[in-house]
Design a protein around this nucleic acid. Structure first.
Length: 634
DNA sequence: GTAGGGTTAG
């Protein structure tokens, strides 16, 4: 490859002190100037150092490369953009390209200042480039998410005959976001004999677990002889983000056993693990470790989210109030948290406080705001925010926002309007939008529109079990048993099976899982007795099993029997048996709660004078005094 | 002079 010519080439100045045979310097005070400059660099006095450099220029004095190097470092440290450029210019005025390592320092400086055009220009003008220069560029592209550029530079580097090192690979791995590229880069790494490097390994683990093959990422982790904290964090983060909170926490404990101290990153993943699997007690334990990093913004945001998702808004709010620094994520987390927990008005009020505090909402904030409107039936507010997003906040509504409006109209029973809105969206509706409409059709019992929505979903995702279930539920609601049978047959033909309803609850340090109709829990006898006792008590205050939530065409008695063992009822009974004092009973569910269980929970909370909190995949229900925070609107 | 791990929705 032909190197580009050095553009600003000048007649070489023979008096340059660093030319191969040191020249006598014309200025007798040269060594004093130099001494002075390096002293100032040492003292980190950037303004004086730059002033000295300029004064030296006037005296035709030159500093040595080492001093220049410390000057550049100082500019980076102080994030002094103008001074950095000044030093660069000064070096160019020498008439010769700076030494390679100095150009590399400058390159790294521009990258750190996010001045990528300058970095690229410098890179293009460098007469000579080594692995450090290339790696700096590749790393910059990888961080910019310019994956193609990063790969192209890797190829160009190879063509120039420069071998990548471990730095290069750990940078380039970030740009591998498909398994295919990941595999080929992994092969290159092995070929270069760099697979054992911890940095390379942690990057491998990270990208494998993020982009599709967590098991393989774990394998790469598992076979490592020496692991450091980041390697542990990579794998813990991998499991936490993929939703396997149990495995993440198991590894978290393994890490502590191996003698490592959890840092901010570990704890953030630990909290995320609790959030995903809804383990409030465990989350509180992690919180204790977080206290020593009092004002870490990311950790605090993770804490907020954990408490919100575990249904403990009081604790979330306590953290929020204590935070000295709040960013758009902190506010958005609280807004969505309130909305999901049925406190939409407070969510909107918080949105106003956010604006008053001068924090600009982003795309996700607006999803939270619209979610608050749709879940509380605030149709007018929802429309207002949706219509003013672009004008007032400069955020173009995207798929998620359109989805919220479909939800808003659908929940409010304006099904036709929702359908028209979908038609007028200006882009192809995806399965999420259709599923939203389908959910609304169920609440408002519109089976013909439901069938339409379901068919659209199944066109896009023919194996989606949730849709079959919803559709058959809707047919069951209107007692169209032959249609129910047809849906079940279609499921069989597609090889789709119904995911059983599952609820889980933390008691002490253990999580107990209940599956609908599964009686294998060791305390099943007493749970059954407790359930009967509860049903007896709530029947006195008017509970009648609502059998329309049973799928099959059974006799009433059989239907009641099948309702009785819904997983959330088993979990509520178990929670009552183990509940202490005034503590709420917290239950998580994999599917949405059924109408009968919702009624059951309201009355059980009333007669037992307890708070029951159930989180389903979309929102929370706080049952207290015979009412639910969702206002029966879900 | 170049490299790895953490937070918000659906």
């Amino acid at each position: 490859m032909i190197l580009r010519q050095w553009r600003s080439i000048r007649v070489p100045n023979e008096k340059l002190w660093f030319s191969s045979t040191p020249q006598r310097n014309p200025n007798p005070n040269h060594s004093q100037w130099l001494e002075n400059l390096s002293q100032l660099c040492h003292q980190k006095d950037l303004p004086k150092a730059v002033a000295t450099m300029v004064a030296m220029e006037d005296q035709h004095c030159r500093a040595d490369p080492i001093t220049y190097s410390s000057l550049i470092k100082l500019c980076i440290e102080k994030h002094a953009v103008n001074e950095g450029r000044r030093v660069h210019q000064h070096l160019l005025d020498d008439g010769q390209p700076p030494k390679l390592f100095l150009s590399n320092s400058l390159l790294s400086m521009y990258v750190k200042f996010n001045l990528f055009d300058d970095a690229r220009r410098l890179f293009d003008e460098m007469p000579e480039r080594n692995v450090v220069s290339w790696t700096t560029m590749i790393s910059a592209f990888a961080h910019l998410d310019s994956r193609e550029e990063a790969m192209k530079y890797l190829i160009a580097m190879h063509r120039e005959g420069i071998r990548p090192n471990m730095y290069t690979f750990s940078a380039v791995l970030r740009a591998c976001q498909t398994l295919r590229t990941l595999w080929s880069i992994h092969c290159c790494i092995i070929k270069c004999g760099l697979e054992l490097d911890v940095f390379v390994r942690s990057s491998l683990i990270d990208v494998y677990s993020k982009y599709g093959d967590l098991d393989y990422g774990y394998q790469v982790f598992d076979e490592m002889a020496t692991r450091d904290l980041v390697v542990w964090n990579s794998i813990i983060g991998g499991f936490a983000q993929s939703g396997d909170g149990y495995k993440a926490l198991e590894l978290f404990i393994g890490m502590k056993r191996a003698g490592f101290l959890a840092n901010q990153s570990t704890l953030t993943s630990g909290l995320r693990a609790c959030t995903g699997t809804v383990m409030l007690e465990m989350g509180r334990q992690v919180h204790v470790h977080v206290l020593k990093y009092d004002q870490d913004l990311i950790l605090n945001n993770a804490l907020l989210d954990m408490y919100c998702k575990c249904g403990s808004l009081a604790e979330a709010n306590a953290v929020f109030q204590r935070m000295k620094e709040r960013d758009v994520i902190s506010w958005s987390t609280m807004i969505s948290g309130l909305a999901q927990n049925g406190r939409s008005i407070e969510a909107l009020r918080l949105f106003n406080s956010m604006k008053a505090a001068g924090t600009k909402p982003n795309y996700i904030t607006m999803v939270g705001v619209l979610f608050a409107c749709s879940h509380a039936g605030l149709v007018e507010d929802g429309w207002y925010y949706f219509n003013s997003m672009a004008k007032v906040f400069g955020i173009e509504p995207g798929r998620e926002h359109y989805g919220c409006i479909v939800d808003l109209l659908g929940r409010a029973g304006k099904l036709e309007e929702a359908l028209n809105f979908i038609d007028a969206m200006g882009f192809q509706p995806d399965s999420v939008i259709w599923r939203t409409l389908l959910g609304a059709c169920r609440v408002h019992q519109n089976s013909s529109l439901a069938a339409h929505a379901a068919k659209e979903i199944l066109k896009l995702e023919p194996e989606d079990e949730g849709t079959y279930i919803l559709l058959s539920n809707i047919y069951a609601d209107s007692r169209r048993w032959s249609d129910v049978e047809q849906v079940r047959k279609a499921m069989q033909d597609q090889g789709v099976r119904k995911e059983p309803g599952r609820s889980w609850i933390e008691v002490g340090k253990k999580t107990h899982v209940f599956i609908v109709g599964d009686f294998s829990h060791p305390e099943m006898n007493s749970i059954s007795k407790e359930l009967n006792r509860l049903i007896g008590r709530i029947t006195e205050v008017g509970y009648v099993p609502d059998v329309k939530f049973v799928l099959h065409d059974l006799e009433r008695e059989q239907k009641e029997e099948s309702l009785r063992y819904h997983s959330e009822k088993l979990a509520i009974a178990f929670g009552m048996m183990n509940s202490m004092g005034g503590k709420p009973i917290r239950i998580m569910k994999n599917l949405r709660i059924c109408g009968d269980c919702h009624e059951f929970a309201k009355l059980a909370a009333k007669v037992e004078n307890k708070t029951i909190i159930i989180r389903d995949p979309v929102r929370f229900h706080h049952f207290q005094d015979g009412i639910c925070s969702c206002g029966d609107y879900w």
